[in-house]
Computed example of a mutant assay.
Amino acid sequence: MSQKKIDKQMKQIEDKRAKSRIFKKDSSFLKAEENVFDVPTLKLLYSFANKGYINELGGSISTGKEANVFYATGNEGEVAVKIYRINSSTFKAMDPYILKDPRFTHIRHSRKDIIFAWTQKEYQNLLRISKAGIRAPRPITCDRNVLIMEFMGENGVAYPSLKDVKMDDEDARIFYDQIIEDMRRMYVRASLVHADLSEYNILIDIEKGEAVIIDVGQAVTLNHPNAREFLLRDVENIKRFFRKYGIEEETKSILEQIKQKKEEDIIVEPDETDVKAADEKTSTDEETGTDEETRTDENISADEETGTDEEMNAGIPEKEND
């Protein structure tokens, strides 16, 4: 991408920049926003603040179906704080991605357990993806329903998503090749399939001309029973987006590229240590949980038991635009 194009894109990003409110470690930190800051989450954020992971918490970067992402600064510089909403997440949509994942088959089917495991799953997936040589947020720490990771942007301005980047056919080809290579590294080196890859979950570092993979909480290992189906869906999403730039490749050819091993590939060995540690912590939290949390879980379990057959047997959710 030429310097002129880069300057133009950067100016557009700056023009759209929203002025974020900054919440310091005082009473304003208690402001509730969209059912995110319940009491246990606030206590956890204070704990992270005391450890230096968070010094100032800014405005919302993005709001999804299950989580909100906030800009923050800490001892590691600019970070993103992803908070999964325990009381309002559409956690049934998480089932196909986590309850069949061999790493998490032991978890209970309550809302809190699934969300805590999902947070840990995203942390683990980010570790494996980063080790595989894929540009993605570096995970810093996680606990319960909060994940702190590297902020993908500069000076409080997040990189734009692929869908919002204006490019010509030549630029599109460069990004397409990068994304297919990232899918290959994810598959061959990290033994993962993203399972929700699209123009919404890819950011573009305009200045460096690099794609950045995000939102990997649903990524599954290759031994997941739906891994092949998820991979095909990812491929079709990428094909659909780049078709308008004149890029046409057969699905079979793309799959062959993704599964191709190269001499320089370093296979990332899965590390289950953190998963087990988080599992033990979750068990401890359950034993020492507040009466309010316990009652909430009981109500959720009751709701699950009285759910319709259609809800309980729901298959893979279709992509919804935020």
Rank of each mutant, 00 (worst) to 15 (best):
K4M: 09
K5L: 05
K8I: 09
I13M: 15
E14L: 06
K16V: 04
R17A: 14
S20C: 09
K24G: 05
F29H: 07
K31I: 02
E34Q: 02
F37N: 09
F37C: 02
F37T: 01
F48R: 03
G58C: 13
G64A: 13
A80Q: 07
I83L: 08
I83P: 01
Y84P: 08
R85V: 06
F91L: 12
M94P: 06
D95V: 07
Y97I: 03
Y97E: 09
D101V: 09
R103P: 06
H106D: 15
H109Y: 11
H109E: 13
R111V: 14
I114G: 04
I115S: 01
W118D: 01
T119L: 04
Q120F: 00
K121T: 06
Q124L: 11
N125L: 07
L127M: 14
R128K: 12
A132G: 05
G133K: 05
A136F: 05
A136N: 09
V146R: 00
L147S: 02
F151N: 03
M152F: 03
M152V: 00
G156F: 10
A158S: 12
S161Q: 11
L162G: 08
K166A: 13
M167P: 10
D169S: 14
D169I: 05
D171T: 11
A172K: 11
F175G: 04
D177L: 08
Q178Y: 13
I179W: 11
R184S: 10
R189Q: 13
H194C: 12
H194F: 11
A195N: 03
E199P: 06
Y200G: 00
Y200P: 02
N201I: 03
N201K: 06
I204Y: 00
G209I: 11
D215Y: 02
V216E: 00
G217Q: 03
Q218R: 08
V220F: 08
N223H: 12
H224C: 02
N226K: 11
N226A: 03
A227E: 11
A227M: 10
R228D: 15
E229S: 07
D234I: 08
V235W: 01
V235K: 01
E236I: 10
K239Q: 15
Y245L: 09
E248D: 13
T251F: 01
Q257E: 14
K259R: 15
Q260L: 11
K262M: 14
E263W: 05
E263S: 12
I266D: 05
P270L: 10
T273R: 15
V275S: 07
A277C: 07
A278D: 09
K281C: 03
S283I: 08
E286F: 14
T288Q: 10
G289D: 12
E293F: 01
T296V: 02
N299L: 14
A302Y: 14
A302M: 15
E305G: 01
G307F: 04
T308V: 02
T308A: 02
E310N: 03
N313P: 02
N313L: 15
A314T: 09
